[in-house]
Amino acid sequence: MDLSAINPILLIAAMIAASTPILLAAIGELVVERAGVLNLGVEGMMITGAVCGFIIAVNTGSPAVGFIAAALGGAVLSLLFAFLTQVALANQVASGLALTLFGLGLSALLGQSYVGIKPPRMGDTPLGPLADIPVIGPILFGHDIIVYLGLLIVAGTWATLKFTRAGLILRAVGENHDAAHALGYKVKRIRTLAIMFGGACAGLGGAYISLIRVPQWTEGMTAGVGWIALALVVFASWKPWRVLLGAYLFGGITQLQLNLQGAGVAIPVEYLAMSPYIVTIIVLVILSADKSRAPGSLGRTFHASQ
């Protein structure tokens, strides 16, 4: 075992990158849940985004176009969920599961001829001399643009939910859909938009895995990140900034165990690979005592004539 092989600065930089897919998926799901909808299809939307982004990036040669396609792919898939839960009034838990099962199958089907291909590389962000600052440079300024986009989305979500009228309406719909309906807000339309936003974010997160983290396409490559993102929303008590904190925690653990695997720690690889999932469970246990923060209408079906 050689722990000195782990460079702490590079480790922290890698942790930030590792947490980006979780962060993107979780902030999207946070908005969906604040609107009162529980979408368990995050994993399915992520993997669909991963494959859409990968295919488009390979064919156009542009990772940026790939990311746009990933967001669109995730949003389109989420429309299926929106149709099931908002129009057909189906159970949200079952519909979310269906979305995940369908997404996993669809992505495997779409991606089958793309296995083993290398995607075009994403260029570095031109931050100039900032990246050359010792210690802080590589940690804060040495990332690709999507990392910063993720942070921007978190900040934007926080500000929108807290300070704008649109955010207030979204929260009203999530807290009490009957009251919001009585005030004349279009509950279903607002929820559908929130679901699409969640889908787009999950798609971006998935594409980050297939285009930057790995970068390759393999079947089922998101490996539960979507589910961890769902747990993260609970962990964050539905607050954007705590999502950021949680994402860094989980991303950190994922990266740390990878580095420990590389450093040849005496713990078998399989047990290290379990750790992010076990930590998720432990964190859920510690935090689930406080349920008071959950949006009031979370998971309940809304039908206007009731």
Partner: peptide, 26 residues
């Protein structure tokens, strides 16, 4: 036929089932 096509097929079945359930309760 790719193996994943069957997975999509099975997923689709669940979708239709959930969507059609509307007719049972409404």
């Amino acid at each position: 036929l790719p193996a994943a096509a069957i997975q999509v097929f099975q997923g689709m079945l669940l979708f239709f089932l959930l969507a059609l359930d509307l007719l049972t309760n409404y």
